[in-house]
Structure formats: C-alpha cells, structure tokens
Deep mutational scan, measured.
Amino acid sequence: ATNIVGKVKWYNSTKNAGFIEQDNGGKDVFVHKSAVDAAGLHSLEEGQDVIFDLEEKQGKAYAVNLRIK
C-alpha cells in the first residue's frame, strides 16, 4: 500500500524504532531508523503527521518512503 496517512504513536531514538498509527484505523505500523534516515530526518516526534508506504517482510508490516505531511 502507498501514501498511507498516519501519526507517530511513539518513536524511541535510543532503540531506533517506533510505531505509526494509521489514520484509516489499520494496525499500527513499525518504523525503523533506516526509514527515518532515508527521509533525511533525525528523529520523529509523537503526534507528528506522516505519509508512508507499507512494505511487508517476513509477514510484518514496515513503514518505508516516509515523509512529513
């Protein structure tokens, strides 16, 4: 899926990971530091509006192509 709108639920820069809550009510999506880095960002803030694509690896959904809304 592409161009999904959501809000950062939480992001821990020590653990280099967090979750994004989908505005469409879907399951929360894992976001890794690699996606944050690829977006040219240093970190994510709780409640921040984002747009992202979903990629599945080994049955788990990940946020990729992250951008700030």
Rank of each mutant, 00 (worst) to 15 (best):
N16S: 11
H32C: 11
D28C: 11
A63K: 01
E46G: 12
Q22L: 14
D37G: 07
K69T: 12
K27T: 09
R67W: 04
T14Y: 13
Y62K: 08
S13Y: 11
N12T: 06
Y11K: 02
H32I: 06
V36R: 02
N24E: 08
Q58K: 12
K9L: 06
G6H: 00
K57F: 13
A38T: 07
K7M: 05
A35W: 04
V8C: 03
R67Y: 04
A39S: 11
Q48R: 05
F30H: 05
L44I: 07
H42F: 11
W10D: 02
N12C: 12
E45M: 13
A39W: 02
K15I: 14
E56Q: 11
K69S: 11
R67M: 05
A17I: 15
F30I: 06
E21A: 14
E55I: 14
G18R: 01
E55F: 14
V8L: 04
K9C: 05
E55V: 14
T2F: 13
A39I: 07
F52K: 00
E46Y: 12
G26L: 09
S34H: 09
K69M: 13
A63D: 03
D23E: 14
T14G: 11
E45S: 13
W10T: 05
E56A: 08
A35Y: 05
G26F: 08
E46R: 15
K33L: 06
G59F: 05
Q58E: 13
Y62W: 12
A39M: 07
I51R: 04
N24Q: 09
D37K: 14
D49L: 15
D49R: 15
G47P: 00
E21T: 15
D37F: 13
L66D: 01
G25H: 08
A39G: 05
N24F: 09
D28M: 12
L66A: 00
K69I: 14
Y11T: 06
F19C: 11
W10F: 09
T2R: 14
G26K: 11
I51Q: 05
D53I: 03
K9D: 01
T14E: 12
S13I: 12
D49T: 15
Q58Y: 14
A1R: 14
H42V: 12
G26P: 05
I20E: 01
S43P: 09
K27S: 10
A1K: 14
G6W: 01
A1I: 12
G18Y: 07
G18C: 03
D49V: 15
N3Y: 05
S13D: 09
G26V: 06
S13A: 14
K15F: 13
V29R: 02
K60C: 12
Y11R: 02
G47A: 05
A61S: 14
A1C: 12
G59R: 05
Q22M: 13
A35P: 01
D23S: 15
N3E: 06
D49P: 14
A35H: 05
E21L: 12
K60H: 09
A35L: 03
I4Y: 06
A17D: 04
K15H: 10
K57V: 11
G40H: 07
W10V: 05
N3H: 07
G25L: 06
V31H: 01
L66F: 00
D49W: 15
G6T: 01
A17E: 10
F52W: 01
N65Q: 03
T2V: 13
A39Y: 02
L66V: 09
V50T: 02
W10G: 03
K33W: 10
L44Q: 00
V29D: 00
N12P: 02
V50Y: 03
V31L: 07
V31K: 00
Q22H: 08
K27E: 10
R67C: 04
F19R: 07
K69E: 10
K33V: 08
V5S: 14
S43N: 12
Y11S: 03
H42D: 12
S34N: 10
S34V: 08
S13K: 14
G40S: 06
N24T: 09
A17W: 15
F19E: 07
K69W: 10
G18K: 01
E46M: 14
N16H: 13
I51M: 11
A39E: 02
Y11M: 06
K27D: 10
R67L: 05
V5I: 12
G40A: 05
T2H: 12
F30D: 02
D23Q: 15
V36C: 02
S34K: 10
D28K: 08
I20P: 00
S34G: 08
G18F: 06
K27F: 09
S34A: 10
H42K: 13
K69A: 11
E56F: 15
L54N: 01
K7E: 01
I4C: 11
N16K: 15
A61I: 15
E45V: 14
K9E: 00
V36T: 03
I51P: 00
N16V: 04
Q22T: 12
G26E: 09
A35E: 08
V31A: 01
A38R: 10
V36W: 04
N3L: 05
E46N: 12
S43M: 11
Q48F: 06
A35R: 03
L54V: 12
A38F: 07
D49S: 14
F30M: 07
L41K: 04
H32V: 07
V64A: 06
E46K: 15
H32M: 09
F19W: 14
L44E: 01
I20D: 00
D37R: 14
E21G: 11
K69H: 12
N12Q: 07
E55P: 01
V36H: 01
D23F: 15
Q48N: 05
I51F: 07
G6Y: 01
D49C: 15
Q58L: 12
G47Q: 04
H32A: 08
V31C: 01
G47R: 05
K27W: 07
A1G: 11
F52V: 02
L66E: 01
A17K: 09
H42I: 12
K9M: 04
F30S: 04
L41R: 05
A35V: 08
T14K: 14
V5M: 13
S43D: 11
H32R: 06
G40V: 03
L66S: 00
K33F: 09
G25F: 07
E46I: 15
A39T: 05
A38Q: 10
Y11D: 02
G18P: 01
A1F: 12
L54R: 06
Q22K: 08
L44T: 00
A35F: 04
S34M: 10
K57Q: 09
H42E: 12
S43Y: 13
K15P: 02
N65Y: 03
V31I: 10
A1M: 13
N16D: 07
K7T: 08
F30Q: 05
T14I: 12
D37Q: 14
V31N: 00
V8T: 02
E55G: 06
F52G: 01
S34C: 11
N12E: 07
W10E: 04
K27V: 10
I4R: 12
L54S: 03
D28S: 07
Q22V: 14
K69C: 12
G6K: 01
Y11Q: 02
A35K: 03
V50G: 00
F19P: 00
G59L: 04
D23K: 15
D28T: 08
A63C: 04
A63Y: 01
S43V: 11
T14A: 13
K69P: 12
L44Y: 01
A35C: 04
V64M: 05
N65T: 02
G40I: 03
F52S: 00
K7P: 00
Q22C: 13
A17Q: 14
A61T: 14
K27C: 10
